[in-house]
Amino acid sequence: MQLSKSCTATLTALTFAAIVTAAPGGGTVTGKVTYTGTPAKPKPIDMAKEPSCAKQYTTPLMTENVVTGSGNTLEYVVVYISAGAPDESSAPSTAVTFDQKGCHYTPHVLAFQVNQELKVTNSDQTSHNIHPLAKINREWNKSQPPGTPPISEKYDKPEFISVKCNIHPWMHGWFAVVKTSHYAVSDGSGEFKLPNLPPGKYTLTAWHESYGTQTQEVTISGNETKSANFVFTAKPY
């Protein structure tokens, strides 16, 4: 479905792409992601089984399914243009890096573009297996012993992919593969910013791993900065 839509939009896509690269500047969408209700408390992670990781923490690492900030803000929400913007036909040539350090993924949510190079690195003294549980894309599962070169991969379809390490069952992260160059992940204070938007009417989607997706429409004209906020409903369990 997404595919056919993208086909019909190819022509406009190309024009828009040209505009995007030719004319940075343009409009900006900024906003804040917050929640209402009571979210589940982060839980401490016990890494006893992997002493080389456990000893890197004086206080235990916490789960990151729901990371909140003061003022009920939500971190790790992927906000991206899901409609209205052209599909990007070429991926950026820079690679994104997903690091494993202290038996923990950084960043917890990594957003990147279709066909953009993904590099997975292992900064630990132990082997990890990187197992992104892709359902639409090709699934793979590879171990990375310490000191070995980065694993380089690409995804050719947009998808939110849960990533796990079977060796360390607590390790969990996400790949947000999007087909637009207009995306952001909300930071520690729940804020995000999508710059360089050419004028137009867009659908903005916010995705949170536990609380699902929300969308809203924004229209940009000229160089204006529009604000778009998202509010998710939190669940205690």
């Binding site: 297996n129 590879k142 171990s143 990375q144 012993p145 000191g147 070169p149």
Partner: peptide, 12 residues
């Protein structure tokens, strides 16, 4: 290639 990134044998 997958079984020995950089020549180091993986657990699998």
């Amino acid at each position: 290639k997958n079984g020995a990134p950089g020549g180091v044998m993986t657990p699998e």
